[in-house]
Design a protein around this nucleic acid. Structure first.
Lengths: 218, 218
DNA sequence: ATCGCATGTGGCACTCAGTGCAGAACCAGG
DNA sequence: CCTGGTTCTGCACTGAGTGCCACATGCGAT
């Protein structure tokens, strides 16, 4: 009975042929199942709260085994924050494609446009996730840790945009600090956006804070 | 035998009467036991690695029960990062005592001096902790989450140092962004300091990055 | 000195997240 | 129909963290 449900999802995967049309069947089914699981879990999280919802409850609602859950998500937190992994790559790519002469701060701000685009595509989802972050320290922690990975991915594209190091041939921390500061702005903007329930434009808030931190920028 | 060890530690507490002289016995013993536990745990962590060391091993080495461990530390991570809680308060107080006219960025930089003071008092310890942070994502995550608390504590002392908000009577995210950016600088400086094994002065590194992020500051 | 109370400690049983492993079920191609 | 590669399940296990109760301890009051 359980397994049959998964098969149903597999059939379902064969139908959803919009973006993933060219992919092999295996991959399509995998994505469909993952998406289904994600939807079920997020629904439970929003209705009953993140930490009061156990993985057993999720898999029961999704009609699959506990063990299989961990084949699709590496952890409970990954359900909420899994999308951040791919976002890091997108961010890095966007940054790489900014003109070479552009200063680091402006380039970072423009790279964040891909974040804003994702955000604008589904504001309700983003708001739900933000609210969840506020409700649970573990999630908050993991969220920030994921941004550490972004750090590493962005670093090679920031360093060349800075003036040469002042002196001392030690490790130059300025690129890392630049990225950290920019990401902190993004985070602060997000929080403020959530605080006003998404009434103000996130773009504007981000512009404001990034200009406040670095006067005279863009 | 176990309990007697705790008593030994209690006797020990009666002797260590330097800073905690005026405190009641209860509190002194509590601190002594906690310090002992901390020392034992950190020793195991550095020798055998953080995640390969279980709490059972720690309490076995310290001669106390598993259950009591959690009366002194709320979590395994708290052993490594517990000191950050009090540091947040110190930071907030230092910031509060900066002159009222001083601009936010400079005031934050000066407040960080209390961090640097702690740091200078025991650089070897700081280095060990930093290395541990790099080895374990959970620790890294929790570390950043602790700084979120600092955020809240610093906020009321930063907002008054900023020019009035440009327009739009929504939530002003600029103070939060300012703090986030400054803390990101502190974090980046720390990382760089660790990367060169503490050879360069953390003060200098911090000055450099905070000037790089905000040109023309102090 | 001793009695009672607040507090600290230990052991036990429990929940929950996450992992390793063995075997069953599945699908594709021959 | 069968065969080989993959996916799913069930089970047992570790490790962190919590609730509960009984017991030991220190301290103040009588």
């Amino acid at each position: 009975m359980r397994y049959q449900d998964a098969i149903t999802a597999r059939r379902l995967a064969a139908m959803t042929g919009d973006v993933e049309a060219g992919l092999p069947l295996r991959e399509r089914t995998r994505r469909a199942v993952r998406a289904e699981l994600l939807a079920v879990a997020m629904d439970l999280f929003t209705r009953r709260g993140y930490d009061t919802t156990t993985i057993d409850e999720i898999v029961a609602a999704a009609g699959m085994s506990r063990r299989s859950f961990f084949r699709y998500f590496t952890s409970k937190e990954d359900v909420v924050l899994g999308h951040l992994d791919s976002l890091g790559e997108e961010l890095a790519e966007a940054l790489a494609q900014r003109p070479a002469g552009e200063d680091a701060w402006t380039a970072l701000r423009r790279a964040f446009d891909v974040f804003l685009a994702h955000h604008a595509r589904d504001p309700q989802d983003a708001l739900a996730i933000r609210r969840m972050l506020d409700s649970n320290p573990d999630l908050r922690a993991r969220n920030l840790e994921k941004q550490c990975r972004w750090h590493e991915q962005l670093l090679p594209h920031v360093a060349p945009r800075l003036a040469a190091a002042p002196a001392g041939n030690g490790v130059d921390a300025r690129p890392a600090a630049m990225i950290g500061a920019a990401l902190a702005c993004l985070e602060a903007a997000n929080r403020a956006w959530k605080a006003c329930d998404g009434e103000h434009s996130l773009d504007r808030i981000l512009d404001d804070v990034m200009r406040a931190v670095r006067p005279g920028a863009f």
